[in-house]
């Protein structure tokens, strides 16, 4: 089993729904606008903008950026305390109570996907009550990032076990995939040929970010066709 994600950039409109859904799903702290300005925005799923060309022929592209969940993750190699590691299903996980906050993994990540809790996260009164009870709230001073909604996987597994069956594709989708209005994000088992991600990941349009680094990301982008 090897969980992976396919993001079809042909379908993606850059609406940012995935960014918002992820933030709510995972109780990602909402930082003060002032803090956000100096670069402390916490986003597990980010929407990146690429500008191509010069003004009259300028082209703006956008693409969502979750954690790549590399098969050879540069971040887990450098963690001194096993607060980040790749689990047997290929998910690069974070253990918040273990993290000492050295931020070495952030410095080592070529995709810059990790966020740090510079302060203790604070929620506005209304938002606190709507927090997702399935995801632990992180304390100050630890690193966090996209987990491929591993808590949803956990739930789906338990449900499947309760019903005495194997995990099915529809049992579990990440929050970003769930929320995408155009269905651009698909999540599933890359090794299971019956999952949609498997044929999609072998599409001729399939590409990975910074492939030449040999990190073997499990997030696959399908290129736009002009």
């Amino acid at each position: 089993m090897k969980w992976g994600m396919v993001i079809d950039l042909q379908k993606c409109t850059g609406c940012g729904e995935c960014v918002a859904a992820c933030k709510l799903e995972n109780n990602v702290a909402i930082v003060d606008p002032k803090e956000s300005e100096i670069g402390r925005t916490m986003l597990w799923m980010d929407m990146l903008t690429v500008y191509e060309g010069e003004y009259p022929r300028l082209r703006v592209r956008q693409f969502p950026r979750p954690c790549m969940h590399c098969d050879h993750p540069p971040c887990t190699k450098v963690c001194p305390v096993r607060a980040t590691y790749k689990n047997e299903e290929g998910i690069v996980a974070q253990i918040y109570p273990q993290c000492i906050g050295c931020r070495y993994c952030m410095a080592a990540c070529p995709y810059t996907v990790k966020s740090f809790n510079w302060y203790k996260p604070e929620w506005a009164p209304g938002i606190r009550e709507t927090a997702n009870p399935d995801v632990s709230v992180r304390p100050a001073g630890v690193v966090e990032k996209c987990t491929f909604c591993v808590h949803r996987l956990q739930k789906a597994k338990e449900q499947a076990k309760f019903e005495g069956r194997n995990l099915r594709e529809g049992d579990f989708q990440t929050a970003c995939a769930d929320s995408c209005p155009t269905g651009a994000i698909v999540f599933g088992d890359l090794e299971n040929t019956r999952h949609r991600v498997s044929p999609l990941s072998r599409s001729p349009r399939a590409t990975r970010l910074l492939e030449d680094l040999g990190t073997e990301p499990k997030v696959i982008y399908l290129k736009e066709v002009d």
């Binding site: 670069g39 925005t41 809790n117 510079w118």
Partner: peptide, 12 residues
């Protein structure tokens, strides 16, 4: 917390 420093993302 480390918020009192000037560090942020990506200069961590």
């Amino acid at each position: 917390g480390l918020g009192v420093t000037g560090m942020a993302q990506p200069v961590t």
